[in-house]
Design a protein around this nucleic acid. Sequence first.
DNA 1: ATGTCGTGGATGCCACGA
Length: 263
Amino acid sequence: MKNQITISTWNVNSVKARLPNVLEYLKEYQPDVVLLQELKCQTPDFPRIEFEELGYNLSIHGQKTYNGVAIISKFKVEDVITGIPNYADENSRYIEGYFVLNGKTIRVASVYVPNGMDVNSEKFGYKKQFLDALKNHLQKINKYDELVIIGGDYNVANEDIDVYDPKSMRGQVCFHSDEQRKFNEILNCGYFDMFRKQNGDKQQFSWWDYRGGAWQYNKGMRIDYILTNPLAADHAVKTEIITTPRGKEKASDHTPVVTTFEV
DNA sequence: ATGTCGTGGATGCCACGA
């Protein structure tokens, strides 16, 4: 008997400020697993009860004011690790664990890649280092006998089709060849960008700046991804970007991406 | 439209990050 499960990623830009929106999303779409980024709260301050009442198990790697990632799962997640192994990072940007369903091990992680601020800033160097460390780790956990699913805000729009105006944005942060190269190195060690794999050359964005009416004019970028290894890709049914949360009151600037798997 | 958000210091705005 096969199960259909949905795994979603969403940068919520403060889980406390976004709580009503997030709960509304969970009730409407009933995702089995949600990989959250930018919690902007410490682990003890996470609004646990509201999620637990909806049947979710919580694995949280919080931080005050900035960053913070979590795995929200209907299935109990085992052996949770926080932070990329062998990479010292004072920021909470990575959490990983696995669960077993129908005899198959499904490894999931939530990642929040540094924004980089500006290509001439030190923060851009940090971003590139982080992407290297992420690649090294994802290479290690890419096993043939586990479904590996890494959702997150990668802060990289990979192709021209992933931004509204490639000409004006070329070379800018989140659309610079250095970071695109590093993102592609991750793909090249055996990961699929599930949205692109399953939707051909469809243009759809996952983030719109709060400024300048970006949402109203659909001036966005696709920087939130669900990456999977080949085994997970073999089990994937479809991948969608759910845009409705971005149009709501007090919206996050990001919107959820969700992949359905048959396991 | 860089004419926005969210957080938090020590506030009754400002800095920071995105």
